[in-house]
């Protein structure tokens, strides 16, 4: 009866993710990534995945873990530095890589979540990104048509979530998570704190639960920092 979105753990959340599927994975660098689900996908040993994610993690964390297991067939990202295994697989031709502008990536996710088949953006006009793409001139400026993404699953990480799937993100760990949450045929949210419906202020919800199909509280969040930069106290 009613809405049964709460699952026990990452294992239950990732049921149905199979070889060859397309996954959206939230996060910017290592910030706001769904680390529990990524660990589950490593254990699950699903292969031939296409991953849509802004970055590809580092060698021993984030999506880098799936690359180590040679589970990724194709990465669709805007920036993929900082990852030696990624580089090796890309140069050897084992891994297919499609690099697209970051704003285009975000907006193609957004379009999927808003039910729009495509968007127009000026990013990449006159560059190799535009090759083979339809263009159109609006008010004297040329734009590329870019299609909405089509993902089997979207996997996101939020700070707080409730049993109806409503999500609140924290700080810049928000990044791609809200748009990806809206864009998956099935959306999985792992949260730091899962609370009963009615606990969160409706005015403070970033992603309404209608977009979220499965939610669970992550067992552990390492929240690794990629570039620790600080000021010294005098």
């Amino acid at each position: 009866m009613g809405f049964n979105k709460v699952v026990k753990n990452a294992n239950e959340a990732c049921q149905g993710i199979e070889d060859g599927m397309t996954l959206m994975v939230g996060g910017f660098g290592l910030c706001g990534i769904p680390e529990n689900c990524i660990a589950e996908l490593v254990d699950k040993k699903v292969k031939g995945l296409t991953c849509i994610s802004n970055n590809a993690g580092v060698d021993d964390f984030g999506l880098g873990l799936l690359l180590q297991g040679k589970q990724v067939k194709k990465m669709i990202s805007s920036y993929v530095g900082e990852n030696a295994e990624f580089e090796r697989q890309m140069l050897s031709g084992e891994l297919e890589v499609e690099l697209i502008p970051q704003g285009t990536l975000a907006t193609r996710c957004m379009a999927a979540g808003y039910g729009m088949p495509a968007i127009y953006t000026p990013a990449g006009v006159g560059t190799e990104v535009a090759e083979g793409k339809e263009t159109r001139v609006f008010n004297g400026k040329t734009y590329l048509m870019e299609y909405a993404f089509d993902a089997d699953f979207a996997i996101v990480k939020a700070w707080k979530g409730d049993t109806l799937g409503n999500l609140i993100f924290r700080s810049t760990a928000r990044n791609f998570n809200p748009m990806m949450a809206m864009a998956g045929k099935i959306t999985i949210a792992e949260v730091e704190e899962l609370v009963p419906a009615g606990t969160l202020d409706p005015d403070h919800i970033h992603t309404p639960g209608i977009y979220v199909h499965r939610i669970f509280q992550g067992a552990k969040f390492e929240k690794r920092i990629e570039q620790r930069t600080t000021r010294k106290r005098d």
Binding site: S77, S78, Y79, V80, G81, L99, P101, Q102, G103, T104, T121, P122, A123, G124, V125, T127, V129
Partner: peptide
């Protein structure tokens, strides 16, 4: 490594 946000920034 990729264009990150550079193409979006310069185009707009």
């Amino acid at each position: 490594k990729g264009m990150g946000g550079a193409m979006d920034l310069v185009a707009s």
